[in-house]
Amino acid sequence: MSLKILQFGATGQFAREMLDRAGPGVEITALSRAEVDLTDPDAIARAIGEAGDTDLVVNAAAYTAVDKAEAQPDLAYAVNAWAPAAMAKACQARGLPLLHVSTDMVFSGHKAGAYLETDAPAPLHIYGASKLAGEQAVLGACDRALVMRVSWLFSAYGQNFLQMMLRLAKTQPLLKVVDDQRACPTASGDLAAFILSQGDRLAKAPAGAREWGLLHVVNAGVASRYDMAQAIFAQTHAEAPPAMEPVPTSAFPTPARRALNAVLDTGRMQDVFSLQLRPWQEALEEVVAQLTGQKERA
Protein backbone atom coordinates (compact mmCIF):
# COMPACT_ATOMS: atom_id res chain seq x y z
CA MET A 1 0.00 0.00 0.00
CA SER A 2 1.18 3.48 -0.84
CA LEU A 3 -0.81 6.26 0.79
CA LYS A 4 -0.08 9.98 0.84
CA ILE A 5 -1.90 12.04 3.45
CA LEU A 6 -2.01 15.81 3.81
CA GLN A 7 -2.77 16.49 7.47
CA PHE A 8 -3.77 19.75 9.11
CA GLY A 9 -2.37 19.60 12.65
CA ALA A 10 1.01 18.35 13.83
CA THR A 11 1.18 18.63 17.63
CA GLY A 12 -2.22 17.70 19.08
CA GLN A 13 -2.81 14.27 20.57
CA PHE A 14 -4.64 12.86 17.55
CA ALA A 15 -2.19 14.44 15.10
CA ARG A 16 0.75 12.93 17.00
CA GLU A 17 -0.87 9.49 16.98
CA MET A 18 -1.37 9.68 13.22
CA LEU A 19 2.32 10.42 12.77
CA ASP A 20 3.42 7.74 15.24
CA ARG A 21 1.26 5.01 13.70
CA ALA A 22 1.95 5.67 10.02
CA GLY A 23 3.71 2.53 8.91
CA PRO A 24 5.65 1.66 5.75
CA GLY A 25 3.96 2.91 2.65
CA VAL A 26 2.18 5.75 4.42
CA GLU A 27 3.53 9.26 3.97
CA ILE A 28 1.99 12.04 6.08
CA THR A 29 2.69 15.69 5.45
CA ALA A 30 1.60 17.37 8.68
CA LEU A 31 1.03 21.11 8.56
CA SER A 32 1.37 22.99 11.84
CA ARG A 33 -0.52 26.18 12.61
CA ALA A 34 2.72 28.06 12.09
CA GLU A 35 2.77 26.76 8.52
CA VAL A 36 -0.93 27.28 7.77
CA ASP A 37 -3.02 29.78 9.72
CA LEU A 38 -6.35 28.05 10.34
CA THR A 39 -8.10 31.39 10.59
CA ASP A 40 -7.09 32.14 6.98
CA PRO A 41 -9.34 30.27 4.50
CA ASP A 42 -7.20 31.39 1.56
CA ALA A 43 -4.07 29.90 3.15
CA ILE A 44 -5.91 26.64 3.72
CA ALA A 45 -7.11 26.54 0.11
CA ARG A 46 -3.58 27.21 -1.15
CA ALA A 47 -2.12 24.43 1.01
CA ILE A 48 -4.49 21.90 -0.52
CA GLY A 49 -4.40 23.30 -4.02
CA GLU A 50 -0.60 23.41 -4.17
CA ALA A 51 0.05 20.08 -2.42
CA GLY A 52 1.74 17.41 -4.50
CA ASP A 53 0.34 13.92 -4.99
CA THR A 54 -2.25 13.42 -2.28
CA ASP A 55 -4.67 10.56 -1.58
CA LEU A 56 -6.40 11.87 1.54
CA VAL A 57 -6.73 15.11 3.46
CA VAL A 58 -7.14 14.73 7.23
CA ASN A 59 -8.17 17.55 9.52
CA ALA A 60 -6.52 16.79 12.87
CA ALA A 61 -6.68 20.40 14.06
CA ALA A 62 -9.36 22.06 16.16
CA TYR A 63 -10.10 24.72 18.74
CA THR A 64 -10.78 22.51 21.79
CA ALA A 65 -11.06 24.93 24.72
CA VAL A 66 -14.72 24.23 25.49
CA ASP A 67 -15.15 26.82 28.22
CA LYS A 68 -12.95 29.51 26.68
CA ALA A 69 -15.05 29.27 23.50
CA GLU A 70 -17.90 30.98 25.35
CA ALA A 71 -15.75 34.13 25.43
CA GLN A 72 -14.03 33.50 22.08
CA PRO A 73 -16.84 32.52 19.70
CA ASP A 74 -15.23 34.13 16.65
CA LEU A 75 -12.03 32.13 17.10
CA ALA A 76 -13.93 28.91 17.83
CA TYR A 77 -16.00 29.28 14.65
CA ALA A 78 -12.98 30.31 12.58
CA VAL A 79 -11.06 27.14 13.44
CA ASN A 80 -13.89 24.65 13.93
CA ALA A 81 -16.29 25.75 11.18
CA TRP A 82 -14.81 28.09 8.57
CA ALA A 83 -11.44 26.30 8.35
CA PRO A 84 -13.04 22.89 7.65
CA ALA A 85 -15.35 24.61 5.17
CA ALA A 86 -12.32 25.93 3.28
CA MET A 87 -10.73 22.47 3.36
CA ALA A 88 -13.89 20.88 2.00
CA LYS A 89 -14.18 23.33 -0.88
CA ALA A 90 -10.53 22.92 -1.82
CA CYS A 91 -10.80 19.11 -1.60
CA GLN A 92 -13.88 19.14 -3.81
CA ALA A 93 -12.03 21.25 -6.38
CA ARG A 94 -9.21 18.69 -6.51
CA GLY A 95 -11.39 15.61 -6.18
CA LEU A 96 -9.79 14.65 -2.87
CA PRO A 97 -11.45 12.92 0.09
CA LEU A 98 -11.61 14.84 3.38
CA LEU A 99 -11.58 13.15 6.79
CA HIS A 100 -12.75 15.49 9.53
CA VAL A 101 -12.95 14.87 13.29
CA SER A 102 -15.96 16.15 15.21
CA THR A 103 -17.36 15.55 18.67
CA ASP A 104 -20.15 14.08 20.79
CA MET A 105 -20.70 17.62 22.04
CA VAL A 106 -22.99 18.37 19.11
CA PHE A 107 -25.69 16.62 21.18
CA SER A 108 -27.64 17.94 24.18
CA GLY A 109 -27.39 14.76 26.24
CA HIS A 110 -31.14 14.62 26.80
CA LYS A 111 -31.63 11.31 24.99
CA ALA A 112 -31.98 8.26 27.21
CA GLY A 113 -30.01 5.87 24.99
CA ALA A 114 -26.99 6.03 22.72
CA TYR A 115 -26.97 8.64 19.98
CA LEU A 116 -27.19 7.56 16.33
CA GLU A 117 -25.69 9.50 13.44
CA THR A 118 -29.26 10.28 12.35
CA ASP A 119 -30.27 11.87 15.68
CA ALA A 120 -30.84 15.61 15.58
CA PRO A 121 -27.94 17.57 17.11
CA ALA A 122 -28.62 20.25 19.71
CA PRO A 123 -25.37 21.61 21.16
CA LEU A 124 -25.40 23.23 24.59
CA HIS A 125 -22.54 25.66 24.02
CA ILE A 126 -20.43 27.62 21.54
CA TYR A 127 -17.84 24.87 21.13
CA GLY A 128 -20.48 22.29 20.20
CA ALA A 129 -22.24 24.74 17.89
CA SER A 130 -18.97 25.57 16.13
CA LYS A 131 -18.19 21.88 15.62
CA LEU A 132 -21.71 21.26 14.29
CA ALA A 133 -21.27 24.14 11.84
CA GLY A 134 -18.01 22.49 10.73
CA GLU A 135 -19.76 19.16 10.17
CA GLN A 136 -22.46 20.77 8.07
CA ALA A 137 -19.98 22.81 6.04
CA VAL A 138 -17.79 19.79 5.28
CA LEU A 139 -20.65 17.52 4.26
CA GLY A 140 -22.26 20.30 2.24
CA ALA A 141 -19.15 21.21 0.24
CA CYS A 142 -17.37 17.89 -0.36
CA ASP A 143 -19.04 14.80 -1.78
CA ARG A 144 -16.24 12.52 -0.54
CA ALA A 145 -16.17 13.56 3.13
CA LEU A 146 -16.14 11.44 6.27
CA VAL A 147 -17.01 13.27 9.50
CA MET A 148 -16.05 11.21 12.55
CA ARG A 149 -17.58 12.03 15.92
CA VAL A 150 -15.45 11.02 18.90
CA SER A 151 -15.71 11.15 22.70
CA TRP A 152 -13.32 11.90 25.55
CA LEU A 153 -10.11 11.41 23.58
CA PHE A 154 -7.11 10.34 25.62
CA SER A 155 -3.50 9.48 24.83
CA ALA A 156 0.04 9.81 26.17
CA TYR A 157 0.21 13.19 24.42
CA GLY A 158 -1.38 16.57 24.99
CA GLN A 159 -4.02 17.64 27.47
CA ASN A 160 -6.76 15.16 28.31
CA PHE A 161 -8.64 13.62 31.24
CA LEU A 162 -6.03 10.92 31.81
CA GLN A 163 -3.21 13.44 32.02
CA MET A 164 -5.26 15.72 34.26
CA MET A 165 -6.07 12.92 36.74
CA LEU A 166 -2.43 11.88 37.00
CA ARG A 167 -1.40 15.49 37.57
CA LEU A 168 -4.04 16.16 40.24
CA ALA A 169 -3.20 12.93 42.06
CA LYS A 170 0.22 14.40 42.84
CA THR A 171 -1.12 17.54 44.52
CA GLN A 172 -4.67 16.98 45.79
CA PRO A 173 -5.46 15.00 48.98
CA LEU A 174 -8.99 14.30 47.73
CA LEU A 175 -10.09 14.11 44.10
CA LYS A 176 -13.70 15.05 43.44
CA VAL A 177 -14.68 13.45 40.14
CA VAL A 178 -17.95 13.83 38.24
CA ASP A 179 -20.02 10.67 38.14
CA ASP A 180 -23.14 11.71 36.20
CA GLN A 181 -21.58 12.35 32.77
CA ARG A 182 -21.47 9.23 30.58
CA ALA A 183 -19.67 8.61 27.30
CA CYS A 184 -17.41 6.16 25.46
CA PRO A 185 -13.79 7.08 26.31
CA THR A 186 -11.72 6.82 23.14
CA ALA A 187 -8.01 6.42 22.56
CA SER A 188 -6.63 8.87 20.03
CA GLY A 189 -4.33 6.11 18.85
CA ASP A 190 -7.28 3.83 18.08
CA LEU A 191 -8.92 6.61 16.06
CA ALA A 192 -5.68 7.06 14.13
CA ALA A 193 -5.34 3.30 13.62
CA PHE A 194 -8.88 3.15 12.24
CA ILE A 195 -8.16 5.90 9.71
CA LEU A 196 -4.87 4.38 8.63
CA SER A 197 -6.38 0.92 8.30
CA GLN A 198 -9.11 2.28 6.03
CA GLY A 199 -6.96 4.83 4.21
CA ASP A 200 -6.57 2.93 0.97
CA ARG A 201 -10.27 2.07 0.86
CA LEU A 202 -11.28 5.68 1.49
CA ALA A 203 -8.82 7.03 -1.06
CA LYS A 204 -10.56 4.90 -3.72
CA ALA A 205 -14.20 5.24 -2.63
CA PRO A 206 -16.25 7.27 -5.13
CA ALA A 207 -18.76 9.98 -4.32
CA GLY A 208 -22.00 8.46 -3.11
CA ALA A 209 -20.30 5.44 -1.51
CA ARG A 210 -21.49 4.22 1.89
CA GLU A 211 -18.19 5.19 3.48
CA TRP A 212 -18.95 8.90 3.33
CA GLY A 213 -21.07 10.95 5.75
CA LEU A 214 -21.30 10.94 9.51
CA LEU A 215 -19.68 8.16 11.53
CA HIS A 216 -19.38 7.58 15.26
CA VAL A 217 -15.88 6.30 16.05
CA VAL A 218 -15.47 5.49 19.75
CA ASN A 219 -14.07 2.65 21.80
CA ALA A 220 -16.44 -0.05 23.04
CA GLY A 221 -17.92 0.43 26.48
CA VAL A 222 -19.54 3.24 28.46
CA ALA A 223 -18.13 5.03 31.50
CA SER A 224 -18.60 8.02 33.73
CA ARG A 225 -15.68 10.30 34.48
CA TYR A 226 -15.52 8.66 37.90
CA ASP A 227 -15.42 5.19 36.32
CA MET A 228 -12.57 6.27 34.08
CA ALA A 229 -10.65 7.77 36.99
CA GLN A 230 -11.00 4.52 38.94
CA ALA A 231 -9.65 2.58 35.96
CA ILE A 232 -6.72 4.99 35.61
CA PHE A 233 -5.65 4.69 39.23
CA ALA A 234 -6.17 0.94 39.30
CA GLN A 235 -3.32 0.82 36.80
CA THR A 236 -1.13 3.68 37.98
CA HIS A 237 -1.67 3.64 41.77
CA ALA A 238 -2.74 0.05 42.43
CA GLU A 239 -1.10 -0.17 45.86
CA ALA A 240 -2.14 3.26 47.12
CA PRO A 241 -4.90 4.82 45.00
CA PRO A 242 -5.70 8.47 45.74
CA ALA A 243 -8.83 9.28 47.73
CA MET A 244 -11.75 10.04 45.43
CA GLU A 245 -15.29 11.28 45.89
CA PRO A 246 -18.00 11.02 43.22
CA VAL A 247 -19.82 14.30 42.69
CA PRO A 248 -22.49 15.61 40.28
CA THR A 249 -21.68 17.90 37.37
CA SER A 250 -23.35 20.72 39.31
CA ALA A 251 -20.43 20.62 41.76
CA PHE A 252 -18.22 22.14 39.05
CA PRO A 253 -20.04 25.11 37.47
CA THR A 254 -18.48 25.92 34.11
CA PRO A 255 -19.14 28.59 31.46
CA ALA A 256 -20.17 25.85 29.01
CA ARG A 257 -22.90 23.43 30.10
CA ARG A 258 -21.98 19.74 29.83
CA ALA A 259 -24.23 17.04 28.42
CA LEU A 260 -24.82 14.21 30.86
CA ASN A 261 -25.32 11.56 28.16
CA ALA A 262 -22.72 11.62 25.37
CA VAL A 263 -22.85 7.91 24.51
CA LEU A 264 -22.45 7.32 20.77
CA ASP A 265 -23.85 4.29 18.94
CA THR A 266 -21.31 2.58 16.65
CA GLY A 267 -23.67 0.38 14.67
CA ARG A 268 -22.96 2.22 11.44
CA MET A 269 -19.21 1.72 11.79
CA GLN A 270 -19.77 -1.99 12.31
CA ASP A 271 -22.14 -2.14 9.35
CA VAL A 272 -20.05 -0.16 6.85
CA PHE A 273 -16.50 -1.02 7.93
CA SER A 274 -17.10 -4.31 9.76
CA LEU A 275 -15.15 -2.89 12.70
CA GLN A 276 -15.64 -2.12 16.36
CA LEU A 277 -12.88 -0.47 18.34
CA ARG A 278 -11.67 -2.46 21.33
CA PRO A 279 -12.94 -1.76 24.88
CA TRP A 280 -11.71 1.54 26.23
CA GLN A 281 -10.19 -0.21 29.26
CA GLU A 282 -7.81 -2.17 27.00
CA ALA A 283 -6.80 1.00 25.18
CA LEU A 284 -6.27 2.79 28.49
CA GLU A 285 -3.97 0.03 29.71
CA GLU A 286 -1.84 0.43 26.58
CA VAL A 287 -1.63 4.21 26.96
CA VAL A 288 -0.69 3.96 30.63
CA ALA A 289 2.08 1.53 29.68
CA GLN A 290 3.26 4.02 27.08
CA LEU A 291 3.35 6.80 29.68
CA THR A 292 5.28 4.56 32.07
CA GLY A 293 7.80 3.81 29.36
CA GLN A 294 8.24 7.50 28.65
CA LYS A 295 8.99 8.19 32.32
CA GLU A 296 11.50 5.35 32.47
CA ARG A 297 13.33 6.73 29.44
CA ALA A 298 13.36 10.29 30.77
Rank of each mutant, 00 (worst) to 15 (best):
P242C: 07
E296V: 15
D190R: 13
W152R: 14
D67N: 14
M228G: 07
Q72C: 09
P121D: 06
K68Y: 15
S130T: 01
I126A: 11
Q7Y: 03
A256L: 05
D265Q: 10
A187Y: 08
A30W: 03
L146V: 12
T186R: 05
A231L: 06
E135M: 08
K131T: 01
Y157R: 06
G128Y: 02
Q172R: 09
Q7G: 08
C184T: 12
A88S: 04
T103W: 03
A83V: 00
A156Q: 14
L98W: 11
M1F: 12
G128M: 06
A15R: 02
T249Q: 10
R94W: 05
D20K: 15
Q13R: 08
H237R: 08
G113P: 08
M165N: 07
R258T: 11
T54S: 04
I48G: 07
L260N: 11
M244C: 06
P255Q: 11
R201Q: 14
W280D: 04
D67A: 06
Q72G: 07
T186W: 00
A220G: 02
P73T: 07
L31E: 02
T118N: 08
D265A: 11
V138W: 00
V177S: 01
K295R: 15
Q13V: 04
Q72V: 10
A51S: 11
L153G: 10
M244Y: 11
F161M: 12
D40F: 03
L284I: 01
G95E: 12
M269I: 12
P241L: 07
T103H: 03
Q276I: 13
F194N: 10
R182M: 11
L96C: 12
Q136L: 05
L19C: 13
A60D: 06
G293R: 13
I126M: 11
R201W: 10
M87S: 02
N59L: 02
Q276L: 13
D271R: 15
E27V: 14
L132H: 05
P206W: 06
D200H: 12
N261M: 03
G49K: 05
A76P: 00
F194R: 12
D42Q: 15
V79G: 07
M164I: 15
F107P: 00
Q92R: 13
G113T: 13
R297P: 00
K176Q: 14
Y77E: 13
P24F: 05
V217I: 13
I44E: 08
L202V: 03
A203Y: 04
G128T: 04
L214F: 09
P173G: 10
V177D: 00
A223W: 01
L275H: 15
A243W: 08
A141K: 07
A61R: 02
L214V: 09
L202E: 01
F14T: 13
I195W: 10
W82Y: 14
R257I: 13
Q276S: 15
G49D: 09
Y115T: 03
I28V: 14
C91Q: 04
D40R: 07
G95T: 13
T171W: 13
P248C: 03
A238Q: 08
A60K: 02
D40I: 09
A220D: 09
A262D: 03
W152D: 02
Y115A: 05
Y226I: 04
A112D: 12
D119F: 05
P41K: 03
I232Q: 01
M164A: 14
A231I: 03
L202T: 02
Y63W: 08
N219Q: 08
V150E: 06
L174T: 13
D20A: 15
R144A: 03
L146D: 06
A133Q: 07
K204Y: 10
L6K: 08
Q72K: 09
P173Q: 10
